[in-house]
Design a protein around this nucleic acid. Structure first.
Length: 586
RNA sequence: GCGCCAAUAGCUCAGCUGGAUAGAGCAAUUGCCUUCUAAGCAAUAGGCCAGGGGUUCGAGUCCCUUUUGGCGCGCCA
């Protein structure tokens, strides 16, 4: 079904037309002044300019037409020319009950579903997952769910960083530690020789060290580059070792992403694009896009309208190994071949914007995707510490994702242990959900593209505008519905509006479609967070003002139960879109 | 140097294509649990929306400019 403001805009547009004005002026929005009205239309101001009339006069004419409309209980014109609209309770109920019946629970469906590849996560193998990886995973997961809820087909791809210099660094360091390993021998035989098993813990220690060494030791760095080149060119021992690095690392990642409730359809990496690199180079060569520059091969992507100098993309380094632009371009070839997507979207750190601009231009120039395929960069901001600099732990290190989840989960568990509503057997799983809800909501409530200050202590309070509050609201509803007993008709409509707090609650429910469209349009889950919070507040107020279970009037009680059942469904849907799992009790 | 982004309550942030009295959470002060989960509800206090120009009937929102901060600017990803 349509979003409510869409439906109302159509009514008001007709009224504008009936009064002799452009129907395009009839856009309705939620009211800024809930004390005056529920919805408003500011079209009279624009009409005043177009038709050289006083805004008030225009609004008044339109209001005359709308007076007769049964959808509104009150149509008023205010001061300069605001058209203030309040819905008739009967209409409000009709809309709310329609949402109950709607298979999509009021979420507007995309008129033409698109095939979208969503590239998010993007961790590097051999490096531990840390909180720098959190945003891409959480935001990507939510955007994926939002797109799917609108009816789009989405393939989520983690796009592992598994083919670059970082692997060369790890190989170099391992070689220095274990020169006797068969995989380092030039005559390594993949059929006969085995590779030493590795653990994630070991890799987590090896990479940072190797990275540090390479910065101070040019010879070490040189060997890492050489190892990268040889790996990419198929040296058997390195390939076998790389496979083991990948295996150990991916196993560790999967467990962390699972805890976070983040999933991927594809676990492809840069290496999977490797086979397309020769083809990429051929295409670039055929289209005469390649230029040699300081020993590297580059593609010019500058355009006349550029405000700042646009450097060329390097597609082959001077040591002949590939770089992230190479694998990103080769990945586009693969995605086009496998899915022929309408859109490929990248949920990546803002700092990579220039890189992706270059890659997109190069891809279009080379015709890797049709001109109409949308390649878009959905950047996100950095998580800073309270000092305004990228977040560090107290000792100056980077916080591992695993540790962060464990810390918040522990805090949640302490609270749960004090609750009489949760069985001991459920502590662990419930604590995970509560902790992860706190983390996810705390992140998603922020605007995607902006940096924000991350304060771990905030997550421990489990108070106020948090994911916890949303889960708590759901558990309160659960409690009532459970205690109200079984003989309740789940399809019974909400029959009347008895109180003000109920009306506000219904209004919030009706706005869900609008908010969803906004979140979808801007790929911005924060609107859903805010709305879920608003809905929860509206429920809490209603809950506080009215005693549902003790209500003697059976019709009223039934109506209220139907109302809160709908609130629960909408709230759970919003949580699902955010990637947050509810709990039964807490 | 060039470019991009930001600056709103003590702190962390909202503020929809410019609209009517700038909103939350935390922190502070104060009420509310023999009654559906107090991880809650209600209330008080807190603002020259960084400074200065401009456009407009109307600007936190658009334009210009200054200041401050963050980020980016070929062989890391």
């Amino acid at each position: 079904m349509k979003a409510i403001t869409q439906t109302l805009s159509e009514l008001v547009s007709q009224a504008f037309a009936a009064a002799g004005y452009d129907p395009g002026l009839g856009a309705v929005t939620a009211s800024d002044r809930l004390d005056l009205c529920q919805f408003q239309c500011n079209g009279a101001f624009a009409a005043a300019k177009l038709y050289h009339k006083a805004p008030f006069a225009v609004a008044d004419q339109v209001a005359q037409v709308l007076q007769n409309d049964s959808a509104f209980s009150k149509v008023e014109v205010a001061k300069p020319g605001f058209l203030n609209l309040t819905l008739d309770d009967g209409y409000l109920l009709k809309q709310a009950n329609a949402i109950t019946q709607d298979p999509h629970l009021g979420i507007p469906q995309a008129p033409s579903p698109a095939a979208i590849i969503l590239d998010y996560g993007g961790p590097n193998i051999a490096k531990p997952l840390h909180i720098g990886h959190l945003r891409s995973a959480i935001i990507g997961e939510s955007i994926k769910r939002i797109l799917r809820a609108a009816g789009h087909t989405v393939v989520g791809d983690i796009h592992l960083g598994d083919w670059g210099l970082q692997i060369g660094l790890v190989i170099t360091e391992l070689q220095q530690r274990h020169p006797d390993w068969r995989c380092f021998s030039p005559d390594f035989d993949p059929q006969a020789d085995a590779v030493q098993p590795l653990t994630a813990a070991e890799l987590n220690e090896v990479y940072p060290l190797a990275s540090k060494k390479s910065k101070t030791d040019p010879d070490y760095a040189q060997r890492a580059h050489q190892a990268t080149y040889e790996l990419q060119n198929g040296r058997p021992g390195y390939l076998a070792l790389w496979q083991e690095i990948r295996r150990a690392s991916v196993a560790d990642m999967k467990s962390n992403y699972q805890k976070l409730g983040v999933t991927f359809d594809l676990w492809y990496g840069e290496s999977d694009a490797g086979r397309n690199i020769p083809r990429l180079m051929d295409i670039l060569d055929q289209k005469k896009l390649l230029t040699e520059s300081d020993g590297a091969m580059v593609v010019e992507v500058a355009e006349p309208q550029d405000k700042a100098p646009m450097p060329p993309v390097i597609v082959r380094k001077s040591d002949h190994s590939s770089i992230y632009a190479t694998t990103d371009l080769a990945t586009i070839i693969q995605r086009e071949e496998d899915f022929h997507p309408d859109k490929i979207w990248y949920v990546v750190d803002n700092r990579q914007e220039l890189h992706f601009t270059q890659v997109f231009r190069c891809a279009k120039k080379a015709g890797l995707v049709p001109a109409e395929t949308e390649l878009a960069f959905l950047g996100f901001g950095t998580m800073n510490g309270t000092d305004g600099k990228p977040y560090k732990t107290r000792d100056g290190g980077i916080m591992k994702l695993e540790d962060m989840i464990a810390t918040v989960t522990k805090g949640a568990q302490e609270k749960l242990e004090a609750s009489s509503f949760v069985d001991e057997a459920d502590y662990e799983e419930m604590a995970r959900r509560v902790g992860v809800a706190a983390i996810k909501f705390g992140d998603l409530i922020n605007q995607r593209a902006k940096d924000y200050v991350f304060d771990l202590n905030k997550f421990f309070s489990f108070e106020g505008k948090t994911g916890t509050y949303l889960l708590y609201t759901v558990t309160r509803i659960n409690s009532i519905l459970k205690k109200a007993g079984a003989p309740r008709d789940p399809a019974a409509p909400i029959s009347r509006v008895y109180t003000d707090s109920e009306r506000e609650l219904l209004l919030k429910i009706l706005m869900t479609g609008d908010v969803f469209q906004k979140a979808l349009g801007e790929k911005a889950p924060n609107y859903l967070c805010e709305h879920a919070y608003q809905l929860a507040i509206a429920f809490s107020k209603f809950y506080h003002d009215n005693r549902i279970i003790d209500e003697p009037d059976p019709e009223k009680k039934q109506s209220w139960l139907s109302l809160i059942a709908l609130v629960r469904r909408v709230l759970c849907l919003l949580l699902e879109l955010l990637g947050i799992e509810p709990v039964e009790h807490m």
